[in-house]
């Protein structure tokens, strides 16, 4: 199918962008990488009247590092995040997750901010943001605000983003002393959306974990921070605490049925992932 007709604007400045968004309100959609938006438009599942292409706003691209945080501009392509040495060194979780994001041609075009703005429940990036306790930088005509990832993702494709606003960057804390990250997901084919996935971080000392954060994706409308399971893993890791953490997932997670993957299967896979990812965190490196 071909998309329904729409108008196209490509602002050259942020001011122009917000002018267009103010003018068109809910009729406008932001075009960043377009890797999800264009697919839905080509199937006429969505039909915005105007596409506002932000690819001309070069200030939205790029990765920068300060002492305690790493910032990724919303327009930064997945491929650039994947190949960034800063990301690999300072926020390994994102580096670990990137190869799981779709396929090469999609990563060349898709943007980090686009994934955050779309908030696909099966997407790797929102879960990484939640796991890292990162912040989403949102800009509107009225100015800039930063929202913790933990409150930004509100429901199925629903975020804190308001009409007239766009995601301009994300900020994540850089790796602390002793902090480790691990990532895994279970898919039927390479590059598919995950049946279940897990982004994890913790402070590691030998086989002891502290500050454990387990962010699941593909199991609910938003990334889910498994608080009780994380708490069960604080301390020395052994079979029994892993088993306790797995049991805690019964209350942390409330998965939905997917095509070909029931809630029960998702919960089970979440437990398998917990075991695998936690053992990776404490593995001798």
């Amino acid at each position: 199918m071909k998309p329904a007709p729409f108008a196209y604007e490509k602002p050259g400045t942020m001011a122009e962008l917000f002018g267009l968004l103010a003018e068109h309100g809910a009729d406008a959609a932001i075009l960043a990488g377009g890797q999800s938006l264009m697919a839905t438009m080509n199937m006429r599942l969505s039909a915005p009247e105007i596409l506002v292409d932000i690819n001309g706003l070069k200030e939205l691209s790029g990765i920068s590092v300060s002492e305690d945080k790493l910032s990724i501009g919303a327009l930064t392509r997945h491929c650039d995040v994947a190949s960034s040495e800063d990301v690999a060194a300072r926020v390994p979780l994102i580096h670990l997750a990137m190869p799981y994001v779709a396929h090469a041609a999609i990563r060349n075009r898709g943007t980090f901010g686009g994934s955050v703005a779309l908030a696909d429940p099966a997407s790797e990036i929102p879960a990484c943001m939640v796991c890292l306790d990162g912040e989403i930088e949102i800009t509107g005509a009225m100015g800039v605000r930063c929202v913790p990832a933990t409150t930004y993702f509100k429901g199925l494709y629903e975020t804190d983003l308001q009409e007239g606003e766009i995601v301009t960057a994300v900020h994540v804390p850089v790796l602390g002393d002793g902090e480790r990250h691990a990532f895994d997901e279970i898919t039927r084919r390479h590059g598919d959306y995950a049946m279940a996935g897990l982004a994890a971080s913790a402070s590691v000392s030998g086989t002891t974990l502290l500050n454990v954060r387990l962010a699941y994706f593909g199991v609910a409308g938003t990334p889910v921070l498994a608080i009780k399971a994380g708490a069960a893993l604080e301390g020395t890791i052994n079979d029994s605490c892993i088993s306790a953490a797995q049991n805690a997932l019964d209350s942390d997670l409330d998965p939905f049925d997917d095509i070909g993957c029931s809630a029960a299967t998702k919960l089970h896979l979440a437990k398998v992932l917990l075991d695998r990812v936690v053992r990776r965190l404490v593995a001798v490196q």
Binding site: H190, G191, I259, G260
Partner: peptide, 24 residues
């Protein structure tokens, strides 16, 4: 091809109907 009880094809697109890919 997965159908609902109402006879609706649930996975009639390439993202949801899986075929073999090179990786596997």
């Amino acid at each position: 091809c997965l159908y609902s009880p109402e006879g609706q094809l649930l996975n009639g697109n390439m993202a949801d109907y899986l075929v073999p890919m090179a990786g596997e």
